[in-house]
């Protein structure tokens, strides 16, 4: 197992490369979902204000 992680001495280059890619993959999932959630929330807020304004 430790031999697998050592990657024959290439570990200090190989694992950071994989880590950076993993971070990018997860970050883009998070950013996309957050953008969608924020857009939804923004729309809801606007509709709430509109409803208040039309039926006082």
């Amino acid at each position: 197992m430790s031999e697998f992680f050592a990657m024959d001495g290439y570990a200090i280059f190989l694992w950071p490369a994989y880590l950076v890619t993993l971070i990018a993959i997860l970050a883009n999932v998070m950013l996309a979902r957050r953008a969608h959630a924020e857009a939804k929330q923004e729309a809801r807020r606007r509709f709430a204000i509109e409803d208040e304004g039309s039926s006082p």
């Binding site: 979902r33 953008a35 969608h36 857009a39 923004e42 729309a43 509709f47």
Partner: peptide, 22 residues
């Protein structure tokens, strides 16, 4: 696709269909 949905919501801010979708 997820980003596109966010982008569409942001651009169509005044459209009434959004009300039904949400």
């Amino acid at each position: 696709l997820v980003r596109l949905r966010a982008e569409i919501l942001r651009r169509e801010r005044t459209a009434s269909w959004i009300r039904e979708v949400l």
